[in-house]
Amino acid sequence: MAQVSSIADEQTSTPVSSSKSITLRISRYNPKHDESSQFMEFSVPYEKWTTVLEAILEVKKHFDHSVAVRYSCRQATCGSCGMMINGKPRLACFTKISELNSNVITVEPMNNFPIIRDLAVKFERLFDSHHKIKPYLIRDDSELESDEREFLQSPKEVEQYIQFANCIKCGLCNSACPTMATDSSFVGPQALAQAYRYVADSRDKGKDTRLKIIDESHGIWRCHFAGSCSQVCPKGVDPAMGIQLLRGYLLGFRS
């Protein structure tokens, strides 16, 4: 299936001004009728600011509109365009071609996620795990009465969890995690980091409930602190830190 196409050879309405180009290798796979994935290669011009997502969209526009890729915001906010780029999980919209220092860019679907087609993967398990840890404030008086005000917090209390509230559910951490690579039932770094986010929130009263949920054989104890999740997080969430701090509650180091 491998082929090399070039925008310069195509009849296109888009002016291409760049003299630089890279070879973009895109993994193609449709579980419905393909036995294995194959790579298609395209020669794509780029500028200093061109992102991998833009290069993929160039391919869709000029060569093969059937390439399946999920994207939306193009600014690392929606968490839709996670994929393996040159072997590491990254957001395609947040990764510039120029920063990869390679003439060949290989894009593949994220590991540890079932493939829908080509670069698009299923997020059901990630969302199920996220939902499982009750990602919302738990307290008896969560409904405000008319004469009440919002729950106040000091800046110090906010700092305890705000970093973990940056999670965009892109799934890169789960894709990089070595435990997720072999254990389908592991709750995963994304959900565990979010469990910490709510446990550390001074407004929340659901600590015991959440700790009970993650204190199981495929829960927090399957994390071995490899730290890969934190290295690939595009929002600085640092799930490895959250998981270890969360484990501190279970081990009695924190209260």
């Binding site: 550390a200 600085g236 830190m241 270890q244 484990r247 081990l251």
Partner: peptide, 13 residues
Amino acid sequence: GHGGVGVGKPTRP
């Protein structure tokens, strides 16, 4: 590390 020792403190990244 598993006890949360030496893993840093949460902050605005």
